[in-house]
């Protein structure tokens, strides 16, 4: 099993985050998004194996092969965009009660681990 520690720096560039939501969430309504950043604006640690475990919850709905059918694909996203979108759900700036529920219980380490894992999967065609 691959085990790795990767340090992810969360971008606090408003433009890039908003763009990430627009690019990645496809059918989701996009709007100006308030960003939550790491309290210390420092690095957030992500763990691939932990991300793979946590991702099992995601792929019940989001196909692991990235096929989009009623639910947006999340494979191949860049890590920053992934974290930005999850934070947007966490603070309920993006609507979908199921995603808000999922995001609400993810701490920064868990989000970073998920972001790391999904970034390594092939992007949806």
């Amino acid at each position: 099993m691959v085990r790795v520690l990767v340090v992810l720096y969360i971008s606090i560039n408003i433009f890039s985050i908003t763009q990430a939501v627009a690019e990645r969430s496809g059918k989701l309504e996009t709007k100006a998004i308030l960003i939550t950043t790491h309290p210390n604006e420092g690095p957030v640690k992500g763990d691939f194996e932990y991300g793979e475990y946590l991702a099992a919850e995601c792929v019940t709905c989001h196909s692991a092969t990235g096929k989009d059918k009623g639910i947006p694909p999340i494979t191949g996203w860049d890590a920053e965009g992934f974290i930005s979108v999850m934070n947007a759900y966490k603070i309920k700036d993006l609507e979908n009660p199921a995603m808000q529920l999922i995001a609400a219980r993810l701490d920064e380490e868990q989000m970073a681990s998920l972001a790391l894992y999904f970034a390594t999967l092939p992007e949806a065609e």
Partner: peptide, 22 residues
């Protein structure tokens, strides 16, 4: 934006985190 792919990821191998593990 920075994108981490499998190749880049492989280059980072070697360190282990016990994140969330029991």
């Amino acid at each position: 934006m920075t994108k981490i792919n499998r190749r880049q990821f492989s280059a980072l191998l070697g360190t282990t985190a016990a994140a969330g593990a029991l």
